[in-house]
Nucleic acid binder design. Structure first.
Lengths: 231, 231
DNA sequence: TGAATTATTGTATTTTTTACAATATACTTG
DNA sequence: CAAGTATATTGTAAAAAATACAATAATTCA
């Protein structure tokens, strides 16, 4: 390899995940408390350098997520790459950002080796983040808003069976606006890819709501027919 | 820097641009004929390794575009990063893909130092491309379809003054479907961010069409008021 | 002057969106 | 077990948007 070429092969590439979860408090993001330099003792987005011998950005992002949550099948997608010259104190590190959506009730988050703690933060109460993680988070939030109006990804944040009210709260939390109950239900049901499970809530001290589930097969059928999901 | 860390700082990062142009033949992409290894004598997307000392992905993408077109103010946006392990024969090279929209009539394309030729190819008649450039191109095409329905970027591909028929042909070429003349005009004009220049075509052997121009100020005003561009 | 060619425009119908409030069902408490 | 509490569920009328459809207008050229 000539000298000219060699000067180019001195970068590192990392992944950083913006992991969204939803509960009764609203929309949350998973942060880790860094146990190592740089930015030891700071809350940050979970991320790691990519192992150049074995990983692609996609596989590295999945690994970070699995280490932190133990989950295998999660919704994850690339956001974009951030590469400011001074974004990392150790050298030229480009980072490929990802966003992931998980069902918080399906498992518990465990801080892994490289993180002393892992904790959910409501999206409006984040601490100041190191590197360019504030920028990454803001970008991810906008992307989530955009995507949820165009693709049926909201279900990734809810339990398998959910009520229409829960679904509405989710959309309201993400889009930061309120919907009329009747119109919301009309629209969602007219899209025809969620189905009634026949089950109901129990042990609630009010009229129990019907439980629905997302029907990916119906959605796929609609999409291949040129349907336009929109909310 | 410890040995463990050093193993990570051995990657290179490049940019690759998918540059779209529009003319009477339809939608085109700019390819270069590579004058250097690897893949010498192959048509490929214009791209280059990022200079780690001076450039971010964004600035590198702008440079590639400027070298090829001489243009300064062009629409350019990041697509995503591709990082398959074997995508580059010289080592681990991640590439950040960009897409750009240019007014083909505003200037002429000049092959630069690292490219023996530069030529427009209709998007349905591309040669087979090296690296993962086929994948990048296909991704860019889908993204363009998506974006043009949501943002007023189509104007970047047309001359400053354009006719409504030209605008319609552009949308039809990108979205690969036809629109009704009356409904298309109604919708575009109701959006109210293109304005009549008072000028007309001349020297055409038929009724001359009125020339319109895109009014970015009006669009911005609408957007900040929460308007939803959609076609 | 008329033939050729593309530009421009309106209306009726259907579909979608919006605004708006009363009734139903379960649990809890006295 | 009756009344109270809390949330779930449903319909309709009006407005707005999308769609389907074809005749007339303006210029150049022969």
């Amino acid at each position: 390899m000539d000298i000219n070429l060699q000067a180019h092969f001195q970068a590192a590439v990392s992944v950083d995940n913006v992991i969204f979860g939803f509960d009764t408090n609203g929309l949350n993001v998973l942060l880790i408390y860094r146990g190592a330099e740089p930015f030891r003792d700071h809350w940050a987005l979970p991320g790691d350098l990519i192992d150049l011998k074995t990983d692609t950005p996609d596989s590295a992002a999945v690994k970070v997520l699995r280490n932190l949550t133990g989950l295998e099948e999660i919704y994850i997608d690339q956001i974009r790459t951030f590469g400011r010259l001074d974004r990392h104190p150790y050298g030229r590190v480009f980072t490929v950002a990802y966003f992931a959506l998980i069902k918080t009730q399906d498992y518990s988050v465990e801080a892994s080796s490289w993180a002393e703690q892992a904790e959910w933060f409501p999206i409006n109460e984040l601490p100041d983040l190191p590197f360019d993680h504030n920028e990454i988070f803001n970008y991810a939030k906008e992307l989530l808003k955009m995507k949820i109006r165009k693709q049926p990804i909201g279900f990734e944040l809810l339990p398998k069976n959910f009520t229409l009210t829960e679904l509405q709260r989710l959309y309201e939390a993400i889009l930061e606006k309120e919907f009329d109950v009747r119109n919301f239900r009309k629209k969602i049901l007219s899209m025809d890819f969620i189905s009634d499970t026949g089950l109901k809530q129990n042990s609630v001290m009010h009229r129990p709501a019907k439980l629905y589930k997302y029907n990916a097969r119906k959605y796929t059928k609609l999409m291949t027919g040129g349907y336009d999901f929109d909310l």
